[in-house]
Design a protein around this nucleic acid. Structure first.
Lengths: 221, 221
DNA sequence: GATCATCTACACCATTGGACCGAAAACATG
DNA sequence: CATGTTTTCGGTCCAATGGTGTAGATGATC
């Protein structure tokens, strides 16, 4: 009985390539491919794969979100994350979301196959870099950098902060978001105190350095 | 006679997958794979492929650099860029470096195959997004972004701008530079009009995006 | 010496930004 | 339904910001 694998990646080229490669393995069978997290949820219902190979950066619904929802609906689902990022902002959330494997795209393909096999048996296999991160996290007592800070921002506050990083004035933001300037000022005041900075310029600098909004950079124009 | 293709990508998984996929095409043959730009140069000498499929983001030597050097040594080399980025900071440099094709990883695999076939005949095929960027570039008169602008800033104005990128207020800047706040305001006014922006936040954003002060970033503390 | 750019400084004034206060409405969650 | 959060809007008050104009001191350049 082969291991039935479902692929989730917005890079169709990668998707196609992975499919051909994995199908050359005698104990693995790719039974489905989708290009974003949202489709993955429905597809899982339909195909009930043994293992889901999931990219992280995707439009519509990213891999962390998809993994979380998938595991909520199907606690037994085995998700292996396959991505290019090995920083703590990706590794930790993914594993907390319930991923049972984490591999980087620059890993030896055979290693990826091993991870899939391990996952199908319920074992966990991580890329060395991911493991390192976990250990660092443990040793530092799990206090992260500055705990969350920006994750405490509400959605609207994030919207406003994003506008600030575009150099907009409160008035412009108000007109862009279809709210009054008063409201914008409220949001600005609140987000400034949450970020612990003193003015919008510092907020913009912070947002850019932490590159929040890496995702929104497209929709800006 | 098959089209002989060489792959350059630091993601071994993608590399392996692409190889299997492309080899299923009856007129394409993958004759070599390397994982960074530097190795690509030597590999090209050895294999003399018809087409090089090149990733952009790689360690050691990135795709733009590799393409440039490859085309210098072998003007007839046909490089197709395959990447995830479609912004002008990647597209333009890659094409200027001499790439004859530009595709995104989320493109339909068949489209990628077409691009390779076109490249082998000396034809150029770009992803729609890349084409759009080119056209925008043309219509804006080809004057690139805004030439220099910031180089017209006096030394003192640069000092002040740098302080702004640190999030300082006029008062703080004044005390740091041992001048009065009035003077700082003068400098700020002048540099804002030279940069053609309306407030200090936009100035800070501009400076960070253009990363002026890459040199000073150390002395900041 | 005359000229020009730069750096410094000030005055006046309108606009913007932000803190602090309250509060209604929508919404999720228990 | 009670509770808490989020989003919205209002007002007051004051500091910060920025435009415009003027002007003295310095130093480089012709």
């Amino acid at each position: 009985m082969k291991i039935r694998v479902m692929l989730v990646d917005d890079h169709l080229v990668v998707l196609r390539g992975l499919k051909f490669f994995l199908n050359t393995q005698r104990d693995i069978e790719v039974i489905g491919e989708v290009e974003n997290g949202e489709k993955a949820l429905n597809a899982y219902e339909k195909w009930k794969p043994d293992v889901v190979l999931m990219d992280l950066m995707m439009p519509v619904m990213d891999g962390v979100e998809a993994t979380k929802k998938l595991r909520e609906a199907h606690p037994g689902a085995k998700v292996v994350v396959l991505t290019s990022y090995s920083d703590q902002d990706h590794v930790i959330p993914a594993l907390q979301a319930g991923a049972v494997g984490y591999q980087l795209k620059d890993v030896d393909p055979d290693e990826l196959v091993k991870t899939i096999r391990a996952a199908s048996k319920g074992e966990k296999l991580l890329h060395p870099k991911a493991t390192n991160l976990l250990l660092e996290q443990m040793s530092s007592g799990g206090e992260k950098k500055e705990p969350d800070v920006h994750f405490k921002l509400t959605n609207r506050e994030k919207d406003v902060l994003f506008q600030i990083t575009l150099g907009k004035s409160n008035k412009e933001i108000a007109s862009d978001l279809y709210i009054t300037e008063k409201t914008v000022k409220t949001h600005v005041s609140n987000l400034l105190s949450k970020l612990q900075v003193h003015d919008r310029t510092q907020a913009a600098i912070y947002a850019m350095k932490e590159n929040l909004f890496a995702d929104r950079s497209e929709e800006s124009k």
